[in-house]
Structures are given as C-alpha cells and as structure tokens.
Design a protein around this nucleic acid. Structure first.
Length: 179
DNA sequence: CACCCGATTATCT
DNA sequence: GATAATCGGGTGT
C-alpha cells in the first residue's frame, strides 16, 4: 500500500480551515531508523494580521521568520524555558504569515491508536522534535512528514477557545476530536 | 545590556 | 487549584 502525503496546496488556505482538517491526519517521525506515527487529534489556528494572539502579529523577527516562510514547513519555537512547540505553516494569499499549532496526537502501534499524547510540549518531546526541525518541509518523505490519515466524523470535532493566550479569546480556533 | 515574559508542565497543597 | 521552574527572544535604556 502506497501512502499519500498531504500536498502542499492543502496548507495554502486559511489557517483556521487547515487546523480543522488536520485532525485525523497522520504525522510520521523517523529517528535513527525508528518510525513513530500519530494521528493528529488537537490543533489550534494562528493567523497573523488580524490575530493578536499570533506570534507573527507584531511583525517578522528572527524567531518567527519561518511563520512567514513557505506553507507546509514547520515553525518551531522554545517557550517557558522548557518546551518546544510545533506549528505547520498555513495561510492563504490574504495574510503574510500563519500556522497551525499541533497540541496533541494519538500514537499508533501496529496501525491502531495506542497512546494519547496531550500537550504541545509533550508532543514535541515524544517525537524528538526540537529547533533542529524548524522550517522543515513536511510535504516530502523524510524524517518528518504528514500523510492522509483516517476520515473523521465531522460531528466529532469540537471547537473551543485557544489555550494560554491573553487576547482574542472569543475566537474558537482550537479544534480537537476524541477519536 | 538589563529587564520582562510567554501558544507550558510538573509538582505541591 | 495554585505556583515554581526555566531561558531565549523582544523591547527599551
């Protein structure tokens, strides 16, 4: 069976839409020849020009530059002295930057959901993702990429306010599914 | 160059 | 539930 990688144009759309549709996709991580797979079960959308909660809202800096880069690449940053968080850059022509934060996955064992990893910091740690993977292209086969996963019941997707931000709390741009 | 703080989490009460 | 831990980037002096 040939696996289907999620194409770059999937990410060339509004980040909110991409965040919703990333649920159910499978992220694949290869380290030292070992492969880990996980279904994406929780995401948050961050847009730039109209979204005060987005790192890119106040303009481009060295830290957030990959948020302004090509879609389908990672944006990884270090926070609270301890944790890495990973986004996938996603935006349409109307904004210069934007991304989708991956907050939780369900690890697969023999193709079956085995262990849920909750929390953006735990997710990156369990997949050995650090700043080394910043700006990595996830639309090509390699150490880190995203493939088409399972079809979800759209009714099983829940929208809530985003976590840990101080503004734009009224936007329901966090999405998750319980599988 | 000093100061402030964050898209978090572990640990304590 | 509340809070300390922890550190690089952003902002202003």
């Amino acid at each position: 069976m040939k696996e289907i990688i999620v194409p770059r144009n999937f990410y060339a759309r509004d980040a909110v839409q991409v965040a919703r549709e990333l649920l159910g996709k499978v992220i694949v991580r290869v380290v030292d020849g070992r492969e880990q797979r996980g279904i994406i079960v929780e995401t948050e959308a961050y847009r730039s020009t109209d979204d005060p909660a987005c790192h890119a809202f106040r303009g481009k800096t060295a830290r957030n530059s990959s948020l302004f880069g090509p879609v389908g690449h990672t944006y990884i940053y270090f926070i609270y002295g301890n944790h890495y968080c990973m986004n996938i850059v996603a935006k349409d022509e109307s904004t210069p930057a934007g991304g989708v934060l991956i907050r939780a996955i369900h690890l697969l064992k023999d193709g079956k959901p085995a262990l849920r990893i909750d929390g953006p910091g735990r997710f990156t740690r369990s997949l050995h993702i650090t700043n080394n993977e910043n700006s990595h292209d996830v639309t090509k086969f390699g150490p880190l990429f995203v493939t088409e996963g399972i079809l979800l019941d759209p009714g099983a997707i829940v929208c809530t306010p985003r976590i840990g931000i101080s503004c734009a709390k009224e936007r329901l741009w966090r999405f998750y599914t319980t599988l």
